[in-house]
């Protein structure tokens, strides 16, 4: 099953990149898809039946614009800090706990945190995230967690778990 999914996704990527239905392209694509699927099929993420649930795709469609908006805000924030004459930063590494459990969900949470205002994931250890924060504005652990991962957790849980 995993082998088949890996094979199909590699073949789809190949066809998108070549964008032609020439028999040579189809043949080499099938060969390399078989090769890659056989070699790397077992590191493909499991529980792929989740892909068939339309509600997950709906939440993904809600998540993407929200994520894009957070990205743009992060960029404006960084740009302001960078062109400000005395570079107003108050950096440090903080530790927060997430309630997400799936590997995929945690990976996406970490990537989203890295691309949103003022935070960068340094390491993940089980449920603990170590975050480099460019402007620490509170000492309260709950408010920190709320500010760093509270925005994404509900959506990511519905998409990946």
């Amino acid at each position: 099953m995993k082998w088949l999914m890996c094979l199909l996704s590699v073949f789809a990527l190949w066809m998108l990149l070549f964008w032609s239905l020439d028999p040579w392209v189809l043949g080499t694509g099938a060969f390399f898809a078989l090769l890659v699927g056989t070699l790397l099929g077992d590191i493909f993420p499991d529980r792929l039946e989740k892909l068939l649930d339309p509600r997950r795709w709906l939440f993904l469609m809600i998540y993407l614009p929200f994520f894009f908006w957070c990205c743009v805000r992060a960029n404006l924030d960084v740009a302001l800090r960078v062109i400000h004459p005395d570079v107003p930063i108050r950096p440090g590494i903080v530790k927060v706990r997430t309630t997400l459990r799936g590997e995929m969900a945690k990976t996406f949470l970490a990537n989203s945190i890295t691309l949103t205002p003022g935070t960068l994931t340094v390491d993940i250890d089980g449920q603990d995230l170590y975050i480099h924060w460019i402007n620490i504005n509170t000492d309260d652990v709950r408010r920190r967690t709320e500010e760093i991962c509270g925005r994404f957790e509900p959506l990511l849980r519905r998409i990946f778990e």
Partner: peptide, 17 residues
Amino acid sequence: LPDVYNRAQAATKCVTL
């Protein structure tokens, strides 16, 4: 920006987007 972590942060965000 003053150190590696801040630089990585600013550069990654801005250049990725």
